[in-house]
Structures are given as C-alpha cells and as structure tokens.
Simulated assay, not measured.
Amino acid sequence: MDPNKGRTDLINRWGPEQLRNKLNKETFRRITISFYRYIGIDDPYGFRNELFTQWKQLDCLGRIYVAKEGINAQMNVPEHYWDLFVDNINNNKYLKDIPFKRAIEDDGKSFLKLQIKVRNKIVADGLPDDAFDTSNVGNHLDADQWNRAMDRGAIVVDMRNRYESEIGKFQGALTPQVETFAEELPEVLNLLKGKEEEKVLLYCTGGVRCEKTSAFLKHHGFKDVNQLLGGIIDYKRQVTQKGRENKFRGKNFVFDNRLGERISDEVISHCHQCGASCDTHVNCANVRCNLLFLQCESCGQKYHMTCSDRCAEYVLATNEKKIELEKIHNYRPVKRYL
C-alpha cells in the first residue's frame, strides 16, 4: 500500500496546459538525461520521497521509476542547477557515480512535470523476483568493440518494442514483434534456441532492458552474452566523437515528448496511412483514442493529426456532436500501436 496516498506535497498539482505554458516561458536551457542502476533499495517509498523533495527544489522534470531492484530515470535538469544536481547524485548512497546518458537531440521540452513512481520493478518482466540472478550480467561493449563483433558475424538482438525498432535498428538485427518487455523475454529465448554457444549482442535505448536480458539469457545457458554499453544513445556519442562507422540505421525512439532522436539520416519506415517514407511518431489528436502511430506531414494535414476519418470527425465536431459520436463509437484503440 502506498504510504504517500493523500499527500499533496509530494505530487505535481498543475494541469498540462499550465505546465506547457510555464515551460515555454523559461529563458534557460534544460539538459535531458537518462540513467539506471540495478541496486537493492530497502525503502523505495522513502527513497522516492527523498528524491522528489530534492529534485523539485532543483526544478527538475521527468519520469522516474523506483523499485526494490533499483532506479530507472529519464529527466531534464536546468543547466544552471546542473552542478548541484550532480552533487546531489554523488551524495546519495544508491546513486553515487551513476553514469548519465545525455540526449542526442535536446530542445529542453522533453518533460512537462516531475513524476517519481514506485513500481514493483523498474522494468516489468512478468517474472517472479527469484526467477533468475539479475546481477549475473553479460559483458558491456563500447562502440568499437560492438562494431568489431558485428563485423565478425555475432547475433544482434534488439531488446526494444516493435514500434521502436520499426523506425531504427542495427543492420541485420533480430527485432521481436512484441509490444512489451515481458513479451519479449520468452520471444528472444525462442528466437535464439539452439544458439547457446554463439556470441550474442543485445542493445536497447540506454541499457536498462539489456542488463536484465543478459542475466536472463545467461540463466538459460547462453555462454557469450554481451550488451551495448550505454545503449543506442551513448553509441551515437561514441561513434561521433571517435569518427567511427555508425552501424545504426534510422531514428531512436525515446519515451518523452520528443518521441525520437535521429541517429542516422536514413528513414527506414513508412507512414501508416499513405505509405510514404516517414519515421515521425505521433499520438492521435483525438484524446479518447491517443493511438501511437507514424504519420507524414501530408496525412497530418489531411486527417487533422488523427489516425482515421472517424477520429478526425470527432476532433472537428462541436461539443454537442462529440457527445453524440461518443455514444456511437468506441474511440479507445484496439491496440496501442498501428
């Protein structure tokens, strides 16, 4: 049971429009980062409250998950508070020296508010806590090691959801067509059946899903399990700084208001409505639908930023007509993604 229930000092009480207006009026720069750590946290609720109080004072925004198994954070920090934030991190016994991944394309508008939630797990895997030893992880490869392993024919596995890999992936990677990480673990095990002796490379956005997957595969007898150090985000930074070949094609999906950041100039996906080359994710403008899908500019204009004629009719309707349409249609998407 949540001991914070009923407390208003530990939550955000502003509405989306108020938050958006406040963010747009800011005259300073924000730095978007992500980080994670698997570490035993004795009191997740107490830890959550401590972070919320401290980071609210620093005007941080973001979405952070805390669990007994650790922390997974995507957030932004005002540039003028950056040094104080780093000091705050390094003075915390759970977070000291945690590595940050800085966003590749950052407009400072990645998050509207600060949300820190206590979850059963920082990455939901659908498995009992004692199903496998999450600390027995594979090897971490930097960009140079990763590229060499790819050149030598290692098996590359994308540990993200299908709507992520649709817009960007490493050449030749296995891309499980699943919607959640819990679905992905057994699917990857099935895809790799009989390859327990081969070299396996795992990658994801920032590393948190690969960390757990590498331990999962080792538990199931895989001998040479490796993951991309820092995920796609840090891979891009490394190859850019070192002038190395970028083997990632397309765009990297991110779970914030940006919905993506470009890793290479190639566009490998298509508009879900007309089939034109496109890798821009949008949420249907009909808030009762909110379907996540790919839409080109032309279809955005044609359908008024919605996923269908039915939803376009709704967003253009009067309030009276909306009530009538709600009685006729079920606007909730059958699935989260087209």
Results as ranks from 00 to 15, higher is better:
9 D>C: 03
13 R>C: 10
15 G>T: 15
25 K>S: 13
26 E>C: 07
32 T>K: 06
34 S>D: 09
35 F>K: 07
43 D>I: 02
48 R>F: 10
54 Q>I: 13
62 G>H: 12
65 Y>A: 05
67 A>P: 05
70 G>Y: 00
75 M>C: 15
83 D>Q: 15
84 L>M: 13
87 D>F: 09
88 N>D: 10
89 I>V: 14
93 K>M: 12
99 P>K: 14
106 D>E: 11
106 D>K: 06
109 K>E: 13
110 S>Q: 12
118 V>T: 13
123 V>S: 00
144 D>G: 04
144 D>T: 13
144 D>M: 12
147 N>T: 12
153 G>T: 04
155 I>R: 07
157 V>H: 03
159 M>W: 06
160 R>D: 04
162 R>C: 13
164 E>C: 00
173 A>F: 06
173 A>Q: 02
176 P>I: 02
178 V>R: 02
183 E>C: 00
184 E>C: 15
191 L>K: 12
192 L>M: 03
196 E>Y: 03
198 E>I: 01
201 L>M: 06
204 C>W: 03
208 V>D: 12
209 R>Q: 03
212 K>Y: 06
221 G>T: 05
222 F>E: 05
226 N>K: 03
229 L>P: 00
229 L>R: 13
231 G>T: 12
232 I>V: 09
233 I>Y: 01
240 T>G: 05
240 T>F: 04
243 G>L: 06
244 R>K: 15
245 E>T: 12
247 K>T: 12
251 K>T: 13
258 R>V: 06
262 R>V: 08
263 I>K: 00
281 H>A: 09
283 N>C: 05
288 R>K: 14
289 C>V: 01
294 L>N: 04
297 E>N: 14
297 E>W: 07
303 Y>N: 11
310 R>T: 15
312 A>P: 07
315 V>Y: 05
317 A>S: 08
319 N>Q: 13
323 I>S: 13
327 K>E: 11
331 Y>A: 03
